Simulated scan of single mutants.
Amino acid sequence: MTDVIVTRGLVKRFGRVTAVAGVDLRIPAGIRFGLLGPNGSGKTTLVRVLLGLVHATAGEVELLGEPMPRRAARVLPRVGAMVEGPAAWGNLSGRANLRLIDAAGPGGGRGRRQRVDEALERVGLGGIDRRPVRAYSLGMRQRLGIAAALLRAPELLLLDEPTNGLDPRGIGEMRDLLVALNAAGTTVVLSSHLLGEVDALCHRVGVMDAGRLVLEEDMTVLRAPTGRVLLRTPDPAAVVAELDGRVVERSGDLVVVRHDDPAALNARLVAAGVRVAELAPERRSLEQVVLELTGQGADRVDTSGNEARR
């Protein structure tokens, strides 16, 4: 499978601060990829380097098989992106904004009105009036930014916090849109702190912490059973007695058992006359994975000892 994004030893420093530290990343074509991590972990800086918005201090970047930023003029028309929130001319309407953005792309003005109308319709803004963008809600601005990213039917879509400002219905609509785009052949890469959305949407995730890529894995692997079974029973003492050494935790009617085959475990307990109310393999959540791998984030400030809060 072809990789649409490749980085090798990617480093980005701002003075003495290392925002991206030796990232080796490969994202294959045709998937939905989520980039996760706490605030300040380097997610947005990485996306900006991928797009050539800032230059790497060291390392290499390839987008759609081309070196960046050297081939940016050839690559970027094939990429749709929204980074650090939607940009717009606030005194102009949404349609006027999209027409100006489209005019900067290749191919001249042929089909511009249709492209703009189709992009607005896809993000739920087909009925917008002539109000200036400065009068839009945050959710409307977000939808407009995504419409701008979709104008040229991109092969690769890079979105930074695409559901920011959307209500629950809007988040669901955005998820459906990204799934449909991906099904039509667009590779979708989104940077987000909303673990539930990434969990529901993405095939593969990367986790960043302090500028480093600390995990890159398929969701099917992360969701795999842990080798433990969660068991609820009115007879926890009988379970402990029957399984002798396999019980690793007990709390009320919940018993955690080390076992690879839940069906075999259930059959053994039923045969021994132990009542089983509920039984399921334990699986780690995406939230557990991310919390295990990452620090507290750059937006938290703690005190220690008698030091005063400033």
Rank of each mutant, 00 (worst) to 15 (best):
R122W: 07
G127H: 13
D129K: 08
E118M: 15
V116P: 00
L120S: 06
G124M: 07
R112G: 05
G126P: 13
R131V: 01
A103K: 00
G107E: 13
P132Q: 14
E118R: 09
A103T: 12
G107C: 12
G105T: 14
E118V: 15
R110H: 01
G111T: 13
A119Y: 04
A135E: 10
R122H: 11
V116A: 06
E121P: 10
G127L: 06
G126R: 13
D102P: 06
A135W: 01
R134H: 02
G127A: 00
G111R: 14
A119R: 00
A135L: 10
E121W: 03
D102N: 11
A119E: 05
D102R: 09
E121I: 01
I128C: 03
D129Q: 07
E121G: 04
L125G: 03
G126A: 10
V116N: 00
A104T: 01
L100N: 01
V116Q: 09
R134V: 10
G111Q: 13
I101G: 04
G126F: 15
G108Q: 10
I101C: 07
G109I: 11
D102T: 08
V123M: 06
P132W: 14
G108Y: 05
L120G: 04
G124V: 05
P106H: 13
A103P: 07
G107K: 11
G105R: 12
R113E: 00
G109T: 14
P106S: 15
A103C: 04
G124Y: 06
V133S: 02
G107A: 14
R112H: 10
G107D: 08
A104P: 08
G127S: 11
Q114M: 09
V133K: 08
L100H: 06
E121A: 00
D129S: 02
G109Y: 03
R122E: 08
